[in-house]
Design a protein around this nucleic acid. Structure first.
Length: 116
DNA sequence: AAACTGACTAATA
DNA sequence: CTATTAGCCAGTT
């Protein structure tokens, strides 16, 4: 029940959410991208918050590697529960990503650099 | 249609 | 370095 997702096409017949998921699905194992980076790739450089909003709609088991999206500091953004934060970190470390003591990673080392 | 809400960010202090 | 502020955007009320 009450699990309705937006069906409003913002461009063509694909929602902004769909474009976010499509892009995130391309991030390879062991690499990460930032919210702002995804927004930039989608053509809306200032839509970083909307990217996070789109991912927030996913379940932990969604077929989208949401855990490969981190904030601009190379850290995991906190959301209310806190549970998912641990899940995200575990999955990233499992892929070989190492965190510093302050909870951030070296983006210059792990960021997935797209088409260049 | 106006106001509100966020897994964000860059700029300031 | 940390804390605050304002801007931004898509989707929901």
């Amino acid at each position: 029940m009450h699990r309705r997702m937006a069906q409003r096409p913002t461009t063509g017949n694909e929602t902004f959410y769909d474009r976010v998921y499509r892009f995130v699905r391309q991030v390879p194992r062991g690499s990460v991208v930032t919210y702002g980076q995804v927004a930039l790739e989608l053509g809306s450089p200032a839509a970083a918050r909307a990217v996070g909003y789109a991912l927030a709609n996913l379940s932990l088991a969604a077929d989208v590697p949401w855990w490969r999206v981190v904030n601009a500091r190379g850290g995991i953004s906190y959301r209310g529960r806190g549970i998912a934060v641990q899940v995200q970190r575990d999955r990233l470390e499992q892929e070989g990503i190492r965190f510093r003591e302050d909870g951030t990673m070296n983006l210059r080392e792990f960021r997935w650099v797209t088409a260049r």
